[in-house]
Structure formats: C-alpha cells, structure tokens
Design a binder for these strands. Structure first.
Length: 126
RNA sequence: UAACUUUAGUGGGUUGAUGCAAAGAAAGGUCUUUGAGGAAAGUCCGGACUUUAAAGAGUGGGAUGCUGGUUAACGACCAGGUGGAGUAAUCCAACGGAAAGUGCAACAGAAAGUAAACCGCCUUCGGGUAAGGGUGAAACGGUGAGGUAAGAGCUCACCAGCGUUUUGGUGACAAGACGGCUCGGUAAACCCCAUCUAAAGCAAGACUAAACAACAAAUUUUAAUACUUGUUAUUAAAAACUAUCUACUCGAUAGAUUUGUGGGUAAGUCGCUACAGAUAUUCAGUAAUGGGUAUCGUAGAUAAAUAUCAACCUCCUAUCCUAGAAUCAUUUUUAGGUAGAGACAGAAUCCGGCUUAUAGCUAGAGUUAACAC
RNA sequence: CCCCAUCGUCUAGCCCGGUUUAGGACACCGCCCUUUCACGGCGGCGACACGAGUUCAAAUCUCGUUGGGGACG
C-alpha cells in the first residue's frame, strides 16, 4: 500500500527524455511538475534536483521528502508518471511545506490531465 | 581567579509506527541481520590496482631541497640543529649554492658594485684622501684609542664576519685556538648542484549480448604499360609520409593512413570490497614506527539506499516566570517551568597523508599575572 | 582532468615586480558646438575576486579559499 520500490520510479534517461518531450506542466512555488498518463497501472516518480540548489546533503534531503510525500499519496493517482523539478527556494523551506506542496502538485496535475483527455477518464477511474 | 599555549576525545540517546538498499533464509505474500564521517568534502601530494602490442639511449620538462630516522611511498610524520616571533608555555621557516656564469635594484642620492667623475678636508699645487655630506630597503665592517699635513685595518683592544685547525657529535652543528685582514643584496630572477620522475585513470579495464556504416577531402618521386598523349589511369619500386612508443632527437614497430561531416550504441555481469583491516594488550625504540598475542568480520548503490512521523530523556542558551541562598548594592548562583537551538556536512575502486569547514561539551599537560597560605 | 577572474561592459598591463595617480574603447554625468537632436571637442566618475607569504616594494611571484567556464562516457 505505502511501498516505494523500483517499480514506482523513473529510472532510465530515455524515459526522462520522453517526459520532457511529451507531458503537461504545472508550476508551484517550489517545484516544476511534469505529468503524463501511461498504460501501466503503477504510478511512477522521478525527482530532479540540480546542483544550483545546494550541496549533497540538502539535495538528498529534498529527494527523500519528495519520495515520502509521494509514497503517502500515490494510491490516489494510478498510472501517472510524474517528474518533480526543484526550484531555487526549496532549500529554505521545512519538510511539512514540501509534503503539502507535493500533494498539491500531484492533485493539480492529475486534474489537468483528466480534463485534457476526458475520453480516457472512465478507464482509469476507480 | 584571570589571560593564554598545546595534545587528545565526543559529535545527542531510547522506544514505537511506516518505509528504502544489500546479503541470507524460507516458500505464500514473508522473516532475520547489517547499513554513512572526522572530515565521507577539496582533489593538493603519495601508493596499490588496471590498460597503453613491446625493449631502450640522450636532451629537455616537472617535483623536492638544514641533519638523522620512520614508511609500501610521499612534498607526510618523528627527533635534533640553526634563524625568527613571544615575558613565557609554545609557535613559525621553499632553511642547498651569490668565491661557475648572466641579469636586476624605481625614486632619492656624489656614488647601487672591477668603486670613486661631485661637495668637502689637506697641500710643497704634482697631487693625496675616503673622516664628514640631510638620501635610501641596502653605502667595500662597527666602537674606542694611537697615528697623520689631512686621512685611512695604517697600528692596537673588543665585537661581527672569513679561512685553517683541535675537541665533542652518525650528522646538521657547537665550543676553543691560530691566522691574515675584509672579498655587499637578490635564486618565491634565470641558473648551477644533488635526489626522484613514462602516461592515463574504476567513466581504468575484462566478458556476454546487440549493432556495425556511410559520405567528402588530402597524400611525394621515379620507372614500365595503356590510350583519349596529359593537372590521365593502372602496376611496381624507393625513400618519404602518417600513426604509436613521454615534448624533441636517435632508434624501433605497423601501414593504407589522416582530417572533416553525419549516424548508431550507451545494457547486463564482473572489477566491488579481507585488508599497508579494526579493537584490546604486551615487547623494542626518546618518538614517528615496528614485532608478537587474543578477539572480531563491519556499507557497496548506479536517476544512486541509510529516511519520515510521534513520545520521552539528555545537553546548551535566555533583557522570560516561580522559589531559595550569598552580597550594603549592581549582581552572582541552585532547583523547577516556559520558549528557542542542537554545527560542518552524505560513501561511489581502495588505502597513507595534507588542506579547508565545524554549534557545543569533556579530559590531560604546561605558561604568565594577581591574591591567599 | 583543465582553464579563467582588472572600472557598469569589452579589454591592455602580468611572462621578465618599481616607469602608472593601473592605460584604452563603449556606456554614464557636466560643459562647449548647433535653432534642437545626432556627430564632434574638453573634463569628470569609476576596477586589480578574497586571505596569507616572499620581497625594501606585489595587479604581476608562491600557497590556500571563493566564484565562473570548458573537456572526457
């Protein structure tokens, strides 16, 4: 239920490239979100934190917090691929804020995708 | 008590819930064990390991630079010498050579280096002299006495420096004796001397699977043959050319090679963590370090694990609150509560160092000052 | 594994230290020229990334730190 194994991650560089090429985008205060609905029944997450944001410690911390938030909420969004790209201000915010922000991002992007392709809506809703 | 110096250590803990990575067990949806630092960082040195088909010589380049030792090795460390800073504990030093050679020294100043062209002093008017001359970072020793026309290591005493020698020390060097009498600074300027030095780096490299492929341009001379009789084609030979071997030369090897454009593959296994290993103890050594004995096995990912939430405890801080103690008082201090804070920072082939970052806390040794006994 | 850092911007000087008050161009400010603007002329403002060391003296030589950029699969 709340697992986060390798099935729930975006691993290959090629997959990231496809996400960049073909996805819908939403921007929050601390993240840029790329979302895409796939044929799999498993939601997947990828996190991008560049060196601009901080050292290795802060970047790892942000990644972990993102994964934690995704892990707690992923049951709501089946067959959704998401890439979270961190923006400048993330380093100063607390863990609670990040988890809230991630939740918001997920819901927004899912709604946006459903509106964009309403014909698919029926097949993916539970 | 205050102000320091120095050497070590620590780097929050426990419990519960939900997760992640690896290994091992199971075989029904699991279980068990383990899981980040003193700097994991910077990548500044040194090694192990791997590849560069393979053996070299010389020149050059680079690094180091008081002495002795330690080490796998080092630019690291230990001990000592010399010089400098500090009242001292202690700290710092790229600390070989200027009598092999070439350079450089702005401004000021008479003069910046084979001493003397200026002023001055003395003069028998031929000359002698470097005592004095405000400079400068630095002026062919310094102080005192004798001496002289005026002066001068010209002579003497002491000091500094130089050479020879004796003693002590493995040595750097130290102490003493004797001698003649002054022969500057800069090598973090070139340079000389001594020692060391091939390059690239786990994205090294090995295996398996898949894929494989092009196009354009460039490439000397001679000879023979062909014909369309010349900026021709083919063949052969020669050296040359190209590539590699460290930058160059010699030498060696290979040959179709080189350059540009464009395209493709970047996925699995190994390398991968057992060791110049860790902890404790003992012996040798002033010490760095080395030898012996016992116990232990302790991260291994690849969009990259080691986390999130809750509770309690611990530590620190406070223009906060309550209670107590000391003091004339400012204030200091003890206990509890409340609030805040808990640094620097994340393994990526592995070790030995160096450098830089680091909230607070603990311990040892030492110095100086004041007071008390 | 390399390279770089100088006025607001682009740069010279660095190798081989003193000549220089760190030079030049554009930009900015003021004045002149012009009916006015532009062009032109004159003047001004303004910088050696930071911290140590060597030296009499450092933008320049050496070491460390910080920031920026590039190459390699």
């Amino acid at each position: 239920m709340f697992e986060y194994s390798k099935e729930n991650r975006i691993l290959k560089n090629r997959e990231y490239q496809t996400m960049y090429a073909d996805s819908s985008k939403w921007v929050s205060t601390s993240f840029v979100v790329l979302g895409r609905i796939t044929e799999n029944l498993v939601p997947r997450l990828g996190v991008v934190v560049s060196k601009k944001i901080g050292g290795a410690v802060t970047r790892n911390r942000i990644k972990r917090l993102c994964r934690e938030a995704f892990r707690n909420n992923k049951g709501l969004y089946p067959s959704l691929d998401v890439v979270l790209i961190a923006r400048r201000g993330v380093a100063n915010t607390t863990g609670e804020m990040i988890s809230l922000d991630v939740k918001q991002c997920l819901s927004r992007i899912y709604k946006k995708l459903l509106l964009k392709s309403p014909s698919r809506e029926g097949s993916y809703e539970r």
